Simulated scan of single mutants.
Amino acid sequence: MRPITPIDEFEEACLKANLNNIEQKIIDHIRYVGVFTQPSLTKDLKLNTKPPILSILCDICRKIGKHMPEHFKNVRKWSKEINEYDVKWDGELICSLAWNKDGERLSPENGTCLYHTFAVHKELFQGLQ
């Protein structure tokens, strides 16, 4: 089961992480839209394609995770457990690959969509506030 992020701890960790304007913009956008792909995020935020935005997202998660180490450790462990190749992805702190109704990941490898599709964790979603 996915470790649920304690919101107050997450918000405090974000402040302590001293995210720059672009990093904060990425987090705010993800938390607002809820579902995204790398190309949609790059386009919506008018960012360069290099470095890839998912790499930037991992850097952001590591910065935040440093200020909530126990939770981040648990998220990374869970991430590795659910990955078919036993690889952890630091972006799992905030979002995960989305799944369709048939239980398949939304990814080009599964033939379910053109791009990997991610969904923000429910407790971090802010689009309805």
Rank of each mutant, 00 (worst) to 15 (best):
R105K: 11
K63R: 10
W89G: 01
P108G: 10
T5H: 05
R105P: 02
C95H: 01
F10C: 11
L15P: 12
G103L: 05
I53R: 07
E23W: 06
I22V: 11
E11M: 15
F118G: 08
V120F: 04
N21A: 15
L106M: 10
N21D: 12
W99I: 00
I82S: 09
T112V: 01
F10G: 03
R31T: 09
S79T: 11
K88C: 09
V75P: 00
E81Y: 07
S79C: 00
S79P: 00
K63G: 03
S107C: 13
Y32F: 05
C113Q: 06
E81H: 01
G65S: 09
T42P: 01
K80W: 05
L57I: 11
E104T: 06
L54H: 09
Q126E: 15
S40M: 10
I94Q: 11
D44F: 09
H29Q: 07
P51I: 05
T37H: 01
I94G: 05
Q129D: 14
E84H: 09
D44C: 13
K46M: 02
D59W: 09
L97S: 15
H67L: 11
K80R: 14
E23I: 08
S96M: 15
P69N: 10
T5Y: 11
P52T: 11
L41M: 13
N100D: 13
P3A: 04
C61E: 08
C95G: 02
F72L: 02
Q24C: 08
M68H: 13
I53A: 03
Q38V: 04
A17Q: 00
G127W: 10
K25I: 05
D86G: 13
K88F: 06
W89S: 04
R31M: 05
D44N: 12
T117A: 05
L128Y: 07
E9T: 10
